[in-house]
Amino acid sequence: MWKYVVKRFLLMFPTLIGVAMLAFLLLRIVPGDIVEARLMGSGGAFVTAQMIAEERAQYGLDQPLWRQFAGWMWGLARLDFGRSMWTGAPIGEEIKLRFALSLQVAVMASVVATVLAIPLGVLAALKQDTWIDYAVRIFSIAGLATPSFWLGIVIILGFLIIFRWLPPMVYTPFWVDPWQNLAQLIWPALAVGYRYSAVATRMTRSAMLDVLREDYIRTARAKGLWMKLILVRHALKNAMLPVVTVIGIEFAFLLGGLVVTEQVFNLNGLGMLFVESVARRDYTLTQALVMLTASAFIVVNFLMDVMYAWLDPRIRYR
């Protein structure tokens, strides 16, 4: 087990270096840069070539690519992401500001999804082809077909039109005012969590159906084992492998991928920061965010692999 964990851990680093190279190069291939984004906002009638060149030099964009890359990698090695080209603020500060919100929404949405998905998926599998199964399937297909941002708009408009109430549009940290914090974040968490639960419900149902048909379940039933015990100890634990995968990947995605939902609920999260940094060609910030997201995926994958090994002792690294 430990050998497996160490090998999986070491494998993370070449993956991250590959991501860093790709992020750096892809951003430079895309036309336009931050100077264009900053100076041409009003049409740039008075912007001269000299001004553009001076600005580019200030951002270090006049340096050869290899030097820019080497500088960035040297910073990464020291865990120094540098400063945002757009705001001039340290990148760590820019991310820290948004991370708590994004993490909270991701955790809340994951809780919503898990609380809905596992019981519903198990129930649907146990009651296969009954009205309960059909109801759960309709519920989950509707979740898959409903974009979270659309559900968000419906939630906001519903509150506005029916109750003349609007969720808070400014983030308040949980430790400052829990009520205000939840009043803002519960709605995006529900909107996102519903879609997320739909994926997980379907996965739980199909995994449970597979497991329930296994010989060892039949044997357990035949020897008269209590059904609840069969479900929890034998079926659910084995059915959880694909479900854990889905939940893990979705969680990593939620950290930086809630762009439109963040826009609808005016959440100052990492998703919006990501989109804005790309649109502004803020290379340093975009690179840092790519690295953060990639790290989140890689760490979640690593944890999932460790969990697989725990759930299924047959899994070993070869």
């Binding site: 906001i156 506005l160 109430w165 609007l166 549009m169 609808v264 005016n266």
Partner: peptide, 15 residues
Amino acid sequence: LFVRDSAAQVSLIRG
């Protein structure tokens, strides 16, 4: 308030 989405801006005034 920094609100990028115009639908959210309209909601703020409407509310």
